[in-house]
Design a binder for these strands. Structure first.
Lengths: 268, 268
DNA sequence: ATCACTTTGTGCATCCGTTCACAAAGGCGT
DNA sequence: ACGCCTTTGTGAACGGATGCACAAAGTGAT
């Protein structure tokens, strides 16, 4: 399982020479999705270490910094190539470089942000943006009262410029920070303009054609997941109900003996 | 696999009577984590349908609205109990109620938001907050210039009040929207004050004791995952390099023949 | 009543991800 | 030079999640 689908070479595979060199590996191999989602975390911990002058790091140290199991970390890194030194650990700078390369961060990614409300502005001001290869190409909004507002190095532009901005800056990534009502149409326009990666902050499920990659960041969903666990914990510890008063239940639920209720509801 | 770990009853298990009644099921059973993370999505689609007056929904319709496979949806819902009607579908209102209950949303969850920058204010203004059982108990910030600013129904209070707010409002959920530098200490204070569920927006890995549930929302990580896929797609289609100019690589990587480099770096 | 049709709930096979545990690899001291 | 110690890289066992496909359960028409 050295790189990927090449049949495996047995344990003492002497690192196929082509592997040892800077330009080399990690490009052809398909990374497991779970690994991809952890690499950015490793990267963050590593850059923190580099800033503090750490030169070498072991899988145990890095794993505990990232909050994962060290075997998992080693397996994740092994998918990129064999960059550790047994008995020593990993060279921090070198590993940063390799992880960045695997993630595609050795190039610039222009990003367009649609929606300049609080959230859009929070994104635009977000420091971690520029530091890791992402550059804000434009911040768009449809509200004429907001258009023109300066924000960092750039000013809010009108949504009408969307297609123009995407084409001119070769934007591949769009962030949707509009209200839910306009999110789908913004999404459609982004996709039509050629954007194939979308980060959706609006609280709804976007419909896109195949080949477009959508990730959602949804605060309300995260809160609900937290609520579930909080409830579970408190049901476990105490007898039953947690804290706070019961909310009124949506409409008049509670009188459904399931079958009967739904039967009567089929038309109405 | 009717409720959960009770050995399975074979296919025609006649819905253990206790199952059919409103107060009943879904409380004892452990839901798979993957299911929990999807329930909020179903809930959102369902409430949208309810608002549009839809009374009954089939697993196919709901699944396509939520962007998942219908078998998965049915299996997810089956963990809550048997609330569908064969040949018909699910009663929308009733299902909303059951999903809400499973997630613990039939009670109020006071939330404290720490950090009243753009992000904190975006959270505070976020509509979907109140609608689903979450209530903002307070919005805190340590900057005296911001403290006192009115925001919706409430004003920004000083971070010093954290412990007081948590105790007085019985807050169980905290959202950290501070800069990375102060996030860990805010987290420690929240935990010390009794908060056991934390939503972290700051770009760092929080250290918490066992029993505290942390979820992170990290825009930079999401962008990096998108970049990975965008890169992969573009490498697949074209010969190699995608768009945009190469960035300068962190420090002077590229001259590491791995072993030699790390060797020399071990001390320095 | 019976039959055709729709849709749920789930057994089963498969896949992906996690974790353990260990052999191989390399550094370091004597 | 040799043996001890540390740490990587990975085989292998396991557990959970996914998705197919179908029997059971229900509706509705005749």
């Amino acid at each position: 399982m050295a790189r990927n689908s090449l049949s495996d070479f047995g344990p003492s595979d002497p690192a196929t020479s082509a592997d040892r060199f800077p330009a080399g590996p990690s490009s052809g191999g398909r990374l497991p999705e779970a690994t991809v989602s952890r690499l950015p975390v490793y990267l963050r911990v590593l850059t923190g270490m580099a800033e503090r002058g750490v030169v070498t790091v072991s899988s145990d140290q890095l794993a505990s910094g990232a909050g994962v199991n060290s075997a998992k970390l080693r397996k994740d890194l092994s998918h990129l190539g064999s960059y550790g030194i047994r008995g020593v650990g990993y060279d921090v700078e070198y590993l940063i470089y390799q992880v960045s390369r695997a993630l595609g961060l050795t190039q610039d990614w222009p990003v367009v942000i649609v929606g300049a409300g609080n959230l859009g502005r929070a994104l635009a001001n977000y420091g971690g943006f520029a530091t890791r290869g992402f550059r804000i190409a434009a911040l768009l909004d449809s509200d004429p009262a907001i258009v023109g507002t300066p924000l960092g190095r750039l000013a809010v532009r009108h949504s009408d410029d969307l297609e123009d901005v995407v084409a001119r800056h070769k934007v591949a990534i769009g962030a949707i920070a509009t209200p839910a009502a306009s999110a789908q149409s913004v999404c459609d326009r982004l996709v039509a303009a050629g954007v194939t990666s979308i980060l959706n902050f609006a609280p709804l499920v976007l419909n896109v054609a195949d080949g477009v990659d959508v990730r959602k960041v949804d605060l309300s969903i995260e809160l609900q997941i937290l609520a579930f666990h909080a409830q579970r914990r408190s049901v476990e510890r105490n007898g039953r109900a947690p804290r706070g008063a019961l909310r009124t239940v949506p409409k008049e639920a509670g009188r459904f003996p399931a079958a009967a209720a739904a039967k009567s509801a089929v038309e109405a």
